[in-house]
Structures are given as C-alpha cells and as structure tokens.
C-alpha cells in the first residue's frame, strides 16, 4: 500500500487490512470417578489403576470400564513404580510451546502389573541408548509439589536392571 493511500485524515497507521478474530472456548473438564482416583494417587506419588473383573486386565489410568468386556472396573489396584519401555521415539523437532530441551525421548511405559502402557518422558540416559525393553522407574517431583496431575511424575529413568525379555511385553507394543 503506497503512502497516503486510503488513509483517514487523522491517522498515520494506514488503512486497516487485518482483523484479529480469536476464538476461545472456556470449559470445565470432569475427570470422572476412575480417573479421579488415578489423579489422587498421583498426588500421593503412586500409580493407581483398575482391574477388569472379567479379563483381569489392569488399566492405568482407567476410564472406569473395560473396553474389551464392557463392564465397570471397580477393583482398584496400586501399581509398581517400575516398568518397561515398550516403544519410544526421539523428539528432535522443535515446536511451539515446547518445554523440554531437544533431543528427548518420549516412550510408552508399561508399568509392572499393568496391561496397558502410557506415555512418559525418559531422562538420565543418552538418547541413543534408549531401547525397547529398557527397565525404568518413575521419578516424582518433590513431595510438597505433588498434585493430582501427571506433572507429578518428572520423568522415568533407567533402573540399571537387565532389559526385560521381549516375550514379557510383546503383547503391549
């Protein structure tokens, strides 16, 4: 736009060419009974899951029902602090809002006693040494910082134990 083109008499900013049109949604997320139990467990520094009374699989975090059998999972189970990396990826690409220094490892961790893996950050190991079957343990934030959030788990780190046999987690990869 050339100087002076279509300008208002009292304004040096030039004509208006763009309009900010933010869209915003405020809402309240309800975690539900099962996930609330899991979140309260995290506030105490422990993983809490639920077991299906039909197939006996343990889900963490549980949604309150078994997706296979369609029944409520009322049996509350406290899980170990240790688990196995079933699969992982190395994050090398920076993106908006990134809070962790790259490269870092995003892994699926199968807690001992659980029948479903969930995503966790792996630290205290060079990224090129992370592998399937790596035994890991959760590192929690300081006790005064624990809360009903996955942010209570700082990350997982190697336990130093021998790798898990593939047969023990092959159904979960």
């Amino acid at each position: 736009m050339t100087s002076g083109d279509q300008r208002g008499p009292s304004d040096e900013r030039g004509p208006v060419t763009t309009l900010a049109t933010p869209i915003r949604l405020d809402y309240v997320f309800s975690a539900g009974i099962a996930q609330s139990r899991n979140l309260r467990g995290l506030a105490e520094g422990k993983f809490v899951g639920q077991r299906c009374g039909v197939c006996h699989k343990v889900y963490v975090p549980s949604r309150g029902s078994c997706p296979v059998d369609g029944v409520a999972t009322d049996d509350v189970v406290e899980l170990a602090n240790t688990g196995t990396v079933t699969t992982y990826c190395v994050v090398n690409v920076p993106f908006a809002g990134q809070s962790i220094e790259i490269p870092y490892i995003c892994a699926m961790v199968l807690l001992d006693g659980a029948d479903i893996s969930f995503m966790g950050l792996i630290q205290e190991i060079p990224t090129d040494e992370v592998r399937m079957g790596l035994r890991v343990e959760a590192v929690w934030v300081d006790p005064e910082d624990l809360g009903p959030t996955m942010a209570s788990v700082k990350y997982f780190r190697p336990t130093g134990d021998p790798d898990a046999d593939y047969e023990t987690y092959k159904d979960y990869t």
């Binding site: 279509q6 304004d11 900010a20 869209i23 809402y27 309240v28 997320f29 309800s30």
Partner: peptide, 29 residues
C-alpha cells in the same frame, strides 16, 4: 470427581479486503 478449568484459544487474524477494510478504517476514524 475432580474437575479442572480449561481454556482452548486460537489467535486467528484474517485479512479483510478493500471494502471491509475501508469500513474498519472508518470505524477507527
């Protein structure tokens, strides 16, 4: 049951073209 307040927001801006642009420029004046 635990609940948490969430906000989902996208800061879109759109180009307005010469006619709506003139209208908006007029409003500014």
């Amino acid at each position: 049951v635990l609940t948490s307040a969430h906000v989902l927001e996208y800061p879109y801006s759109r180009s307005v073209g010469p006619v709506i642009g003139a209208f908006l420029t007029g409003l500014r004046d």
